[in-house]
């Protein structure tokens, strides 16, 4: 008691002291992040996949060299790249890719438009969840190629069939992604939101949806993978002159012509497009979101 009473004038004097102490604490305790140099980044991130690809090509070349399979069944990497090169020179390569990518993109975007409100509904309305939650999860684990025969009978050999199959593949995973994203929102955020007045629709907009974004993005990424897969299944089965030729049709045509380099070239293109979109589109967005929230510390 005495110590406080004898210096009542000390309060203003302690202020700069406190500010200084606080500044010191802030400086000491603030997490620091160091930037990795570009050279090291390249060595750590780019080298391993390049080496892996080189290894696969080398093994393939060896298998070809020792004729593990007859040449007409297993062409060399050079034959396959030659086939790609020919298509490029003919000017048909980009046409196939574009047909498939535009179908995939349109199907995916439609799935987002349908899957997002559906997911929100399932996550927030208990009876809806009880009614269709399990069905949605079940649909997600069902291979969408199983829908192709039915879709052909319903819609005929046209784009409707292809989009129906893509939607059946992608909508459930996008909706489920949003549901699990919302389920994982810490209750503390919702309480904090309510105390500052984020209730009802404002709570959904300002707290629930932003908090669920990482889960939603994961769902979108998976939704794209499912769109692409379903699209290829549909394109391979539903071939018709009426339909624009995509990568699936390219693959199927090459198979009917016993053109093995063409088959492998088509498979390679399907793989490259799938990986490329994930790498160029989804990965950067996801990393940005996670890094902004401090959920990506240390990696990269």
């Amino acid at each position: 008691m005495a110590s406080t009473e004898t210096r009542p004038e000390s309060r203003p004097a302690t202020k700069p002291d406190l500010a200084g102490l606080e500044a010191g604490l802030d400086a000491l305790e603030t997490p620091t992040t160091a930037k990795t140099p570009v050279g090291q980044l390249l060595r750590d991130k780019a080298l391993p996949p390049v080496a892996a690809i080189a290894l696969v090509l080398a093994l393939w070349q060896l298998a070809y060299h020792f004729q593990l399979k007859p040449h007409y069944q297993l062409p060399s990497p050079g034959d396959v790249f030659g086939s790609l090169h020919t298509m490029w020179l003919q000017g048909t390569l980009l046409g196939y890719v574009w047909t498939s990518v535009s179908r995939g993109a349109l199907g995916f975007l439609t799935s987002v438009v349908i899957g997002t409100p559906l997911g929100l509904l399932v996550a927030r309305v208990a009876p809806v969840r009880a009614a269709i939650g399990p069905i949605l999860s079940g649909l997600q684990s069902m291979p969408s190629v199983a829908w192709v025969p039915a879709a052909i009978i319903w819609f005929g050999l046209n784009d409707s069939t292809i989009y129906a199959v893509v939607l059946l593949g992608a909508v459930p995973s996008i909706a489920n992604g949003l549901v699990s994203g919302i389920d994982q929102v810490p209750p503390l955020f919702l309480r904090a939101g309510r105390t500052i007045g984020a209730t009802g629709p404002r709570g959904v907009r300002h707290v629930l949806l932003p908090a669920a974004l990482p889960g939603y993005l994961a769902g979108l990424k998976q939704g794209w993978a499912f769109s692409w897969r379903s699209l290829m299944a549909a394109e391979i089965i539903a071939t018709s002159p009426d339909l624009g030729a995509g990568l699936g049709q390219l693959l199927e045509n090459a198979r009917t012509n016993a053109d093995m380099p063409g088959v492998l070239a088509a498979i390679l293109l399907i793989l490259i497009v799938g990986i490329g979109i994930e790498l160029l589109l989804f990965r950067p967005v996801e990393r940005r979101v996670l890094r902004g929230r401090g959920l990506l510390a240390g990696t990269r």
Partner: peptide, 21 residues
């Protein structure tokens, strides 16, 4: 727990409270 929203900056967290009011 601080219960700040990690998708917003420090300032935006405060601004959200202002906005909702």
């Amino acid at each position: 727990e601080h219960a700040l929203f990690p998708w917003l900056t420090a300032g935006r967290n405060i601004e959200l409270a202002l906005r909702l009011r």
